[in-house]
Design a binder for these strands. Structure first.
Length: 297
DNA sequence: GTCCAGGATACTG
DNA sequence: CAGTATCATGGA
């Protein structure tokens, strides 16, 4: 199957981003063959896709495990388009960045990079909660243990491509079972709370999207115990895909600004908020591009 | 040993 | 209302 790509799209950036975590359980990047292999939940069961760049510049999508039917092909196309944010017109962001004293230092270098999404709201929130305050390295460990304990494996070529645990599965656990995976008491409680809320149907991606504007989504999410402004905006950025979601308290953002601006200490939240005023409408993309500056090459 | 990681909450003055 | 202690693991 083929997927046509928008004008500004850089596949190398997808590979680089998805290859940050050497022990990633949810997908695999083959750097030499330039492929990404990933399983996701379809209506009739798990689907495994392997994407690659075709010679003609389109995205090639293979289904190495089982031949999909028409519904499944459509689901995969939709999933990938949302995952890689293929539908977004980045031209307004690039125009904005050209005239911004901070973004102009970063954005042109990575033109074509799109925010890689997390389709599942429970996964996005769980990942954000796991990542609160600790290093990415530790957060990756938490995620891997959670996925391999309670997720669902799809075996192919001698390894497992895991499906992230469903909220219903986590909702039935005791806090101690999450603590055994090295979640702190607080994080275990937060994650259980979110899982129960979603399992009860009181929180879903569609109901959140129906809120419409960013402020309303943030209000609903921050009403949940353990979900502060950072977590809410992170989840909205990665899952709901609002281009203006802004994880202001993000340490990576602070470090990126320090690096890009050549500061000798991290800027204050008030300063960042002021700079970001001119990024209005695109603060999620501004953040993603600034994060990129922290990665070599 | 100390500091800090892609924060949130409860508590204090 | 603004500061501060606490969480709790792992790498530098």
């Amino acid at each position: 199957m083929r997927i046509s790509l928008p004008a500004d799209f850089r596949y190398d950036e997808v590979l680089l981003y998805l290859n940050r975590n050497a022990q990633e359980p949810l997908h695999a990047v083959d750097a030499e063959r330039r492929t990404v292999t990933k399983a996701f939940r379809g209506q009739r069961g798990p689907l495994l896709v392997r994407i690659a760049m075709a010679a003609d510049g389109e995205l090639d999508v293979a289904f190495p495990l089982a031949e999909p039917d028409e519904t499944e092909r459509a689901a995969a196309a939709h999933y990938i388009a949302e995952w890689l944010d293929l539908g977004r017109d980045l031209a307004p962001f690039y125009r904005l960045a050209e005239n911004d004293p901070i973004l102009r230092k970063v954005v042109p270098r990575y033109r074509g990079m799109r925010i890689v999404g997390v389709g599942d709201l429970f996964e996005a929130l769980a990942w954000a909660i796991a990542g609160q305050q600790i290093s990415l390295h530790v957060a990756y460990g938490l995620k891997k243990r959670l996925v391999e304990a309670y997720g669902d494996p799809v075996a192919f070529e001698g390894r497992d491509y895991w499906l992230f645990p469903e909220a219903a599965r986590i909702a039935g656990l005791a806090e101690e079972e999450l603590q055994a995976l090295k979640f702190t008491r607080s994080k275990a409680a937060y994650l259980l709370g979110v899982a129960k809320l979603m399992d009860a149907g009181e929180l879903s991606k569609s109901s959140l999207l129906a809120e419409g504007d960013l402020a309303a989504m943030e209000r609903r999410l921050t009403a949940i115990r353990g979900v502060g402004k950072w977590t809410a905006n992170y989840a909205v950025m990665r899952c709901l895909r609002h281009p203006d979601a802004f994880p202001l308290a993000d340490v990576g953002l602070h470090n990126a600004l320090k690096l890009v601006l050549g500061l000798d200490s991290k800027p204050s939240l008030a300063e960042i908020e002021r700079w970001a005023e001119s990024w209005a409408g695109w603060r999620a993309y501004a953040t993603f591009y600034l994060w990129r500056a922290l990665t070599p090459s």
